[in-house]
């Protein structure tokens, strides 16, 4: 089997897939043979471009403008994908936001938005695809956390909290649904060249580079490669794990 066919015949849903890490994951999964759907909230033009790119490369792909906090929209999206391509085998809970604000100035709304987008969004998207996975007793769920969720580092408290929550979400869910042949894992990237790290102040990036053994930031493509492996059948015995990709911090 060649690397290009790693996800042949699989159907994937990536939340927040129009840009940054999400888009890289979408591209990589499609390249590996999966039919890929993704949602986006604001980046309509980027979503259209991504979709065109995928379809142009011969992939089955769909894009939906929907919030991960809209249960009905998620249900409709899953239903539409399953009608077109069959049961969703792969879910990548990637949707997220970044915001740099000290706790002293953090508004309750800031906190809620951060927690909702990362944690509640993952919960709702997972619940939406889980019915099908349980039915076919097969599935791969990958939650995108962050180094900030697994290690003490300079990061906004609400962001680190939300990302840490995803690690707990991963472990409990892995335990709960492993009996159905569904694995749940987590990936925790360090600082990347694009994505939420766009919000990081320069001094924090520099601080990261000082502590990183590779002396560089990662790329979304590097993370996406690992993500594609993690949701593939080649990765059949990892469950409840958090894989850290940080260049060695």
């Amino acid at each position: 089997m060649t690397a290009a066919g790693m996800l042949e015949g699989r159907v994937a849903l990536v939340t927040g897939g129009s840009r940054g890490l999400g888009r890289a994951v979408v591209r990589t999964l499609a390249r590996e043979g999966a039919a890929v759907a993704f949602n986006y909230l604001k980046g309509e033009a980027e979503a259209e471009a991504t979709l065109a790119e995928l379809r142009g490369a011969g992939s089955q792909a769909w894009a939906f403008q929907a919030s991960v906090l809209d249960r009905a929209a998620l249900a409709a999206m899953v239903s539409a994908v399953e009608r077109e391509a069959g049961t969703i085998d792969i879910l990548v809970n990637n949707a997220g936001i970044g915001q740099v604000v000290p706790l002293a100035l953090m508004e309750e709304e800031d906190w809620d938005r951060m927690m909702d987008t990362h944690v509640k969004g993952a919960f709702l998207a997972t619940q939406a695809v889980l019915r099908g996975m349980v039915k076919v007793k097969r599935g791969r769920i990958l939650n995108v956390s962050s180094l900030a969720g697994v290690k003490m580092m300079a990061a906004p408290v609400h962001y680190a909290t939300a990302k840490a929550a995803l690690k707990g979400f991963t472990e409990a869910l892995a335990k709960e649904i492993g009996r159905y042949g569904i694995t749940v894992n987590c990936i925790a990237p360090g600082v990347l060249e694009e994505g939420v790290s766009d919000h990081l102040p320069r001094e924090r990036r520099d601080d990261y580079l000082r502590h990183c053994a590779l002396r560089r930031m990662g790329t979304v493509a590097e993370v996406a490669e690992v993500a594609a492996f993690l949701v593939s059948d080649r990765n059949s015995f990892m469950n409840g794990a958090t894989v850290v990709l940080d260049g060695g911090v």
């Binding site: 889980l130 019915r131 099908g132 996975m133 349980v134 039915k135 649904i177 009996r179 159905y180």
Partner: peptide
């Protein structure tokens, strides 16, 4: 019961 709940959830 958790097993049953998942089954009903998937086949509701």
């Amino acid at each position: 019961m958790e097993d049953v709940i998942h089954d009903v959830f998937a086949n509701q």
